[in-house]
Amino acid sequence: MDLSAINPILLLASLMVAATPILLAATGELIAEKAGVLNLGVEGMMIFGAICGFATAVETGSPWLGFLAASVGGAVLSLLFVILTQLALANQVASGLALTLFGLGLSALLGQGYVGVKPPPTPDLHIPGLSQIPFVGEILFTHDVVLYFSIVLVALVWLFLRSTRAGLILRAVGENHDAAHALGYKVVLIRSLAIVFGGACAGLGGAYISLVRVPQWTEGMTAGVGWIALALVVFASWRPWRVLIGAYLFGGITVLQLNLQAAGVAIPVEYLAMSPYIITIVVLVLLSRDKARAPAALGRIFHASS
């Protein structure tokens, strides 16, 4: 065993990178679920965002246009879900699964010309002054903009849900759509916007994998991250900061266990390999011992005349 081989600065830095795609996708899904919509298509929107972002970044040479295209791509794909569940009143679970399958297939088709291509690098943001602080500065202030944006987004979503009138309306729609409708709020419109926001976030998360974390395009490269994001929203009991804790725990332990393996720590590898799942679940379950519960209208179909 040689723990000194693990560099804590690099460990913490790669932890944040590993957590960001999950965090982005989960934050988007949180808003959708708070509005009462269960969208199981996160994986499909992520992978679609991954290829949209990758292709655009390669073609234009700009990672920023890539990230923009990724969120637009995710949002466009989520419009399909809007049409199915909000206009055609289809079952949300089935529509979400269909969206995942569709996204995986469509991205594989679009990505055929991009296998083995190298994307333009996403520059790190060296915040003047702050990044020169020893240790802390290197860990916290030398990442790319999207990583910081994901944290800011969590804060904004938290503020939005907690202290704004629009956030209150969104929650009302998610708790009791009939009452919200009776008060004159446009349930379908609000839910549609929430779904599109979720799609944009998932697309951004996908592009973070294909442009920063790996960086390359491979078919099926999200490999289940979308499903982890979905589970995370539930275990975080629909609270933004808990989603952040969960994502960093999961990403962090995933990277940490690989580090421990490489350093030859005498813990059986099977336990290390399952530790991210177990520890994340245990911590979030302990955190949510209070009266946390799902939005009351989650997954239910709203029809104005019923």
Binding site: S14, A18, I209, V214, M221, A223, V225, T254, V255, L258
Partner: peptide, 11 residues
Amino acid sequence: DPAKEADAAKV
């Protein structure tokens, strides 16, 4: 699992 494989290589 490209993301995990990349993580393993980076570590």
